[in-house]
Design a protein around this nucleic acid. Sequence first.
DNA 1: ACCCACTTTCGAAACGCTTCGACAGTTCTG
DNA 2: CAGAACTGTCGAAGCGTTTCGAAAGTGGGT
Lengths: 337, 337
Amino acid sequence: MTTIHDVARIAGVSISTVSYALSGKRSIAESTRRRVEEAARQLDYRPNAGARMLAGNRTYILAVTEPLRADTYAPAHMAFFLAVATAARRYDYDILLLTQEEAAAGLRRVTASRLVDGFIVLDVASRDERTELARTLGIPSVFVGVPDDTEGLVCVDLDFEAAGALAVDTLADAGHRVVGLLGHPQGVYEHGSNFPPRLRDGFLRRAAERGLEARFAMPDADAVRTGEALDALLGPEENLTGLVMHCQESVQSAALDSLRERGIRIPDDLSVIVAATTLDTSRLDPPIDAVPLVPAHSCDRAVELAIEQLTEVVEPRVELIAPTYTPFGSVSPRPTA
Amino acid sequence: MTTIHDVARIAGVSISTVSYALSGKRSIAESTRRRVEEAARQLDYRPNAGARMLAGNRTYILAVTEPLRADTYAPAHMAFFLAVATAARRYDYDILLLTQEEAAAGLRRVTASRLVDGFIVLDVASRDERTELARTLGIPSVFVGVPDDTEGLVCVDLDFEAAGALAVDTLADAGHRVVGLLGHPQGVYEHGSNFPPRLRDGFLRRAAERGLEARFAMPDADAVRTGEALDALLGPEENLTGLVMHCQESVQSAALDSLRERGIRIPDDLSVIVAATTLDTSRLDPPIDAVPLVPAHSCDRAVELAIEQLTEVVEPRVELIAPTYTPFGSVSPRPTA
DNA sequence: ACCCACTTTCGAAACGCTTCGACAGTTCTG
DNA sequence: CAGAACTGTCGAAGCGTTTCGAAAGTGGGT
């Protein structure tokens, strides 16, 4: 194993000079710094992690608590998970996985043993036991998502309300007067995460503000497959011309199938937008406009905020990320027929 | 922060006694051990991770390399991932995530900095760059999956060949004479993981051994949705009576839908088995017999083998886990019609 | 020529743990 | 009953960093 002593010997300096040269925490003569760097590179020197943790009081590790509630959609969650890991690496941080079954105990454990510098909470539930821990554990933490009680917490999330509103605005601007939201199953709105209700509220409020007739369905997968859900939304006269979808991927494609079967063309007969999705909707058939949910956005910021807390005071806050709109041609002006 | 010195003081012993009492590495008088344990509990003492790594040359962390090739099925992969984490905790180990984009660099990094004691490779590809690293890095490693070149490696995996054979045997024992395998898309067999071919080979070989007529299809999702794939398997006279599925979940359900549409009843007209799946097939409609792929089985063993390598020599090997069969009533004797 | 300030480097003290060797006591063994 | 063999405990030496304080060297201002 090559240690800082080896580097010091090769570079002809003391170990403290090596440490300062590599960390940049004190000024070092340019020529010396280069010699040290060269020696370090030549020996492929990496500071011993344990020693660094012990002496430096920094572990360069963040914990991520693994959520996986029953209704968590694995691909989306995976994307968030990877986004955190990728963001962390940019700050030279690694990610430690805490499984659900020991969410609280694990958090306590890694905190007490000083194994991590902070933690990121994914897949936040409305009432989340981890909020309590975040307040008491005394290490940096950031929630990617917004629990009911955000007192004292740092949270980052897409602005789902604005996302719902943005979808409505897009349809309204295109002249649509009757719009619908195909949402998640009812249970999700009652005791799931709180982003579905947030999107719904944004949708309904903006529709009202713009004077649109708004419809809302919370079908389960079966109701979509049988077409029942769409019947309800489209209405007896089928006068709904703008549809926003905020539901699972499988339900999305079932709905598209169902529309195809009825001979309803997109966007000629119906304009469609998928809201807050991690899916690449340009690969749907037909491609569908999206208000994308980009894991990297919230996760980058979350990691940044977590690490910032190590060196400065970060006021508790809820940072909502403004939604964007990605057109793929699935929205067209209301048919004037 | 409470340290080993605090515990020693409260228990009225030296810190080395505390260390030995808690680790059990030397015999300690029963009464002393109890006093130490009581003090540790009372103070909620957890050894400082950095200090422990530094002094003990053990980090109690395993790296898991994040695979995510394009065709990796997220829910299944997630299940494996969690299974590793859960298994690791049983040995008091934590899991560090290495993202794909720095698979090789990351492994080198965490090895050189002595941040992990070993690593687990998931979602192994036939030709996997990580095999080379496993041979040269000099720390324990275990592959969950079987790459083409296993020289010098420790690998654990379900015996996919035996799984294919088991499915065939079950159908043959029930009297079926014409059996089919609904596999993955062709591309997967050409340059994906190697478990699909392994299952296929087991299927075809055993079918030949038992004198059955065997059919094999590698449809893409569309071919299944349109029913084309099933047409080919069922044959013009629809004389296929036993079907094994080894494909993505979404393709599975599309195939079941397709069968339903044609009025083919399970198991009356067709006996069906899902092979090597992480899905709970008892919740399908109708429930389908399975040769389950249980992440916990391979992952438990993988973690065990990784940790074993820390203290003793573990011969390179490929450990294949015997498949089991879980009936849910989707296989019945061949209709004698 | 002298002092002061600044830059650059070094030595040494932590950080909290594990583990080796040693030392009393105790218990066998012949 | 002397010496050998255990048992249970302790002290101290690391493990490889970071970081504090100080020393040595360099110029500028007076």
